[in-house]
Computed example of a mutant assay.
Amino acid sequence: MPDGIVKLKKGEGRVLKSGGMWVFDNEIDAITGDFEDGDIVEVHDFDGYYMGVGFINRKSKITVRIMSRKKGQEIDEQFIEKRVRNAIEYREKTVDMSSCRIIFGEADFLPGIVVDKFSDVLVVESLALGIDRFKLIIIDKIKMVLKEMNINIRGVYERSDAKVRTLEGMERMKGFIGEEFDTKVEIIENGIKYFVDVQDGQKTGFFLDQKYNRAAIKPMCKGAKVLDCFTHTGSFALNAGMGGAKSVLGVDASELGIAQARENAEVNGLSDVVKFECADVFELLPQLENDGEKFDLIILDPPAFTKSRNSIKNAVKGYKEINLRAMKLINDGGFLATCSCSHFMDTELFTKTIAEAARNVHKRLRQIEFRTQAPDHPILWSADESLYLKFYIFQVCDEM
């Protein structure tokens, strides 16, 4: 049973009361009991009303992450198994599970941990002290439930090397959990083969959240000249190539990413159509404009330009700049696929930024689609942080 009680200030706990799972340090009136950071505690409102049970870390601004709202709920192995089983059953009904996100933190009611499945390999990213204690149990339960579905896992790699762990007072970790294996993993997504570097690739090695967005661009690619900016390991570029593009140029600032993208193009027999260049997109776009280049489709899939509210103004400038530059490079009637993966760049602000960019270059936008992340990254209403990916497809027209 919990050994501590966290009491909220009067009028605080708004996120928690609206269905969220976080209690922030500035919302707390008092903490009592005999416990260590990472232990399970109860959360009470200012008047003693029970609000939930979760793990505490006084080093973190998110002091408590709620695990359950049921009074008397034991956070034990049986509880973890139920959470894992629910997460996998949800994905069985909603996505292609050959490669997918198995656990998505708060949205799967296991706050602070992400687990991706790439073919027969799991990659785990643990970002909070309390959930770190359950990490191995979570992995074992995932393996067990998948085995019941005749899906065997040959290896697990940990990518808990994000800077955010230091905010939790934790060391950054990276390495095998269990036996070693070849960390270059082949997956198939939308009929396209990729080699995923789970050891040294960005985040967990591959961005699964764009799976269905990548497929959504294919109808616009037939016979098109395509530019894929921030291509990472070539995923949008390869979908464009498979969609029948005349030519595709993928651009990224990472030499490692470009090398992997070229290998991915080769294994799919697309090397003649899909080319890659290592360059800074912010420098390349004006250069292409000066050279008189034009494209039928441009894809903008940048990394998060902001990871805090403090830098949102600079992020807006960055998003506006690349969208403005891209629109100038698109043929009249051509297409723009543009996205933001920053939680702090909310849908309203992102939409406003794109609209301003279009006005500045005298372009008219016809919206074709607005999409978010794939269903294996579920959006939990009341947990705002679970909605982060915004993805638009527009037709870009010259002013009448």
Score class of each variant (00 low, 15 high):
Asn323Cys: 03
Asp291Lys: 15
Ser308Ala: 12
Ser254Phe: 07
Asn86Tyr: 12
Lys307Gly: 01
Asp209Lys: 00
Leu380His: 07
Asp301Cys: 02
Val43Lys: 13
Asp182Gln: 11
Ser386Asp: 00
Ile56Pro: 05
Tyr90Asp: 08
Pro219Gln: 07
Val84Asp: 08
Val273His: 06
Asp197His: 05
Asn213Ser: 05
Gln373Asn: 02
Lys147Gln: 14
Gln78Phe: 10
Ile192Gly: 10
Leu249Arg: 07
Val361Ser: 14
Gln78Met: 15
Ile131Gly: 01
Lys225Glu: 04
Gly112Gln: 03
Ile312Arg: 07
Glu293Lys: 11
Met173Ser: 12
Gly334Asn: 01
Ala216Ile: 00
Glu171Lys: 15
Leu297Gln: 00
Ile56Phe: 11
Thr372Glu: 04
Asp161Val: 10
Lys363Glu: 04
Phe391Ala: 04
Ile298Pro: 02
Ala259Gly: 12
Phe305Lys: 01
Phe276Leu: 07
Ala240Arg: 03
Cys397Pro: 01
Asp37Met: 07
Gly243Asp: 05
Asp197Thr: 07
Arg359Lys: 14
Glu189Ile: 07
Ile75Tyr: 05
Ile56Ser: 08
Asp272Ile: 04
Val198Lys: 00
Arg371Trp: 04
His362Pro: 00
Glu12Ala: 15
Leu324His: 09
Gly244Pro: 10
Tyr157Ser: 09
Lys147Arg: 15
Gly13Thr: 06
Ser308Pro: 01
Val251Trp: 06
Phe109Pro: 08
Val164Ala: 14
Lys352Asp: 15
Trp381Val: 15
Ile298Ala: 03
Asn150Glu: 15
Lys117Asp: 03
Lys320Ala: 09
Lys218Ser: 10
Leu297Ala: 02
Gly241Pro: 12
Phe79Ala: 08
Leu324Gly: 02
Tyr392Glu: 03
Val267Pro: 10
Lys352Cys: 06
Cys397Glu: 08
Asn323His: 02
Val145Cys: 08
Arg172Phe: 07
Phe344Thr: 02
Ser386Ala: 00
Asn150Pro: 08
Met170Leu: 15
Glu171Arg: 13
Ala128Trp: 01
Phe35Asn: 09
Phe181Ala: 11
Ser386His: 00
Arg309Val: 09
Gly155Leu: 08
Ile113Pro: 00
Glu89Gly: 09
Met242Thr: 09
Phe195Asp: 06
Lys193Trp: 05
Glu168Met: 09
Glu168Val: 08
Lys313Ile: 13
Asp252Asn: 11
